[in-house]
Design a protein around this nucleic acid. Structure first.
Lengths: 223, 223
DNA sequence: GTCTATACAGAGATAGAC
DNA sequence: GTCTATCTCTGTATAGAC
C-alpha cells in the first residue's frame, strides 16, 4: 500500500485492485451523494498515501470536483478524517455486537468467541481500506477527536475481553491471561489492514474462520 | 502514539515514556555522533507524528541544531527515513538469524520456532519506536527505496516460513497452511509497534515468551 | 560543520462570480 | 453547490557568512 510512484492520479487510486473494499457502505444514510463520494475518495487517498500526504485537491479530484467544493461539505480536511474514523469504529462495534453475527448453532463460550473473532476479522477484511485509515491514521486527529475515538476503542476492547473472560470463568477455556490473549486475538484482525486485498486468496469469511480457529487454539484448555 | 496536542517540542518527545526504546543502538558504528543523534531524533518524530507531519526543523531541534544542519549529514528528509527503515529491516533479520538467539537446550522444530518467534518479538519490543517507523511509514519512501526494503521483507518472511515448513515436514507440527500461519505469527510481533511501551507490564522477553507459546499453539499437532 | 536568511513550491482554506 | 482565482502559511532545501 506504500506509494510506488511520485504521484497517483485519482483514477489510478480508484482502479487499484489493492484499494477495493466496501467502504462506500459505511456512511450515514442521510448523507447526500457528493459528501459520500468525498468520504470514499478520502478513504482511498488516506489509505494509499497517508493523511498528511493527501491534499484536499486529491480528495476532490477523486469525485471530479474542484478543491473548493470539499469545503461546502466538510469544514476541514481533519473533519473528513474524523468522520471516516468515527464511522469505522462505531460500525465495527455494532457489527460484532449484532446477534446475527453469532453462530446459529451453539451458544457456549467457544462458539461465541469463534463468532465474534470471525466477525471482527470479516469486518476488517471487507472494509480493509477504511479500516487501514481507522487503525493507522489516528495521529492525524486533533486531541479532542482522538479522545473521542479512544473511548469507542476502549468499549470495543472491553467487549472482547469480556467474551474471553466468560469462557475462562465457566471452564471452557484454559486459565489464560485474559488481557494479553485478547490483545493478541485483536492484533491478528487489526494487522490484516496492512496486507489484505479482496482479490487475494482469502475471502473475508475464510480469513475470519481461520483467525477464529487460531483464537480457539490460544485459549484451548489442556487435554 | 497519536498526537495529543497541536505540537510537541523536541524535549516533549525525548522525555515521553511511550517513546523510549533502544533505537540509538541501530545505527552503523562508523557513523559520527551528530548523524546518529539526528537519526534517533527522527525516529521519535516519525513514530509520534508520522513522516509527512514531521518537519526537518523538528528533527534538528531534537539534537539542538538548526534545520540547515541536517543537510550536511543527509541529502534529504526521505533519505533519513530510508536509513532508519533499512537499518531496522537488516538488523531484525540479522538478529533472528543469530544462533545466539536460538535456545541453548533443544534443537527440534518446536524449540527452533519458539526461539525465532521470541527473538522477532523481543527485537520489535526493544526497538518498538524504530520498528513502528519501519512497519508503518513505508509510504514515505520513494518507489526505488520501497522496492529495496520489500526485498529484505521477502527474505525475512521466507526465513520464518521455512522454519514453520520444516516442523510440518518432520511431523513436529500439524499439517497447517504454512503461509497463513506464518503470516499470523508475524502479525502478532509486528502489531505490537502500535501499542507497546517499555515501561508497561510486559518486558520484551516476557512478551517474546508469550507470543512464542501462542505460535506453538497455532501449530500444535492433534492429540 | 553550524549558523542566519531566504528562495521556492505546495497545500489548506477563503472570496466572490455564476 | 460548484467554479476560478487567490491569500497565506508552512516546509524543504539552498546560499553564503563564520
Amino acid at each position: 500500500m506504500a506509494r510506488r510512484q511520485a504521484r497517483y492520479t485519482a483514477q489510478d487510486l480508484a482502479d487499484d485492485p489493492r484499494l477495493q473494499d466496501h467502504s462506500p457502505d459505511l456512511w450515514r444514510a442521510d448523507l447526500a451523494a457528493v459528501p459520500r463520494g468525498l468520504l470514499t475518495s478520502a478513504v482511498r487517498c488516506f489509505a494509499a498515501n497517508g493523511f498528511h500526504a493527501t491534499t484536499t485537491r486529491d480528495i476532490a479530484e477523486g469525485v471530479g470536483l474542484s478543491p473548493a467544493a470539499l469545503y461546502v461539505h466538510f469544514p476541514s480536511k481533519e473533519l473528513v478524517l474524523f468522520e471516516i474514523i468515527r464511522a469505522g469504529h462505531e460500525r465495527v462495534l455494532e457489527y460484532v455486537r449484532d446477534p446475527a453475527v453469532l453462530p446459529a448453532h451453539g451458544d457456549g463460550s467457544a462458539d461465541r468467541l469463534r463468532a465474534v473473532i470471525a466477525g471482527y476479522t470479516v469486518w476488517h477484511a471487507r472494509h480493509h481500506v477504511a479500516a487501514r485509515v481507522c487503525q493507522l491514521e489516528l495521529a492525524g486527529l486533533t486531541a479532542e477527536h482522538y479522545d473521542e475515538i479512544l473511548e469507542v476503542r476502549h468499549r470495543t476492547n472491553a467487549f472482547f475481553r469480556d467474551t474471553v473472560a466468560r469462557g475462562v470463568a465457566d471452564g471452557s477455556f484454559a486459565q489464560v491471561d485474559v488481557k494479553r490473549v485478547t490483545r493478541a486475538m485483536l492484533s491478528l484482525s487489526i494487522d490484516l489492514v496492512r496486507w489484505y486485498r479482496l482479490d487475494g486468496s482469502d475471502s473475508p469469511e475464510q480469513l475470519g474462520e481461520f483467525y477464529a480457529a487460531l483464537a480457539i487454539r490460544m485459549v484451548a484448555p489442556p487435554g
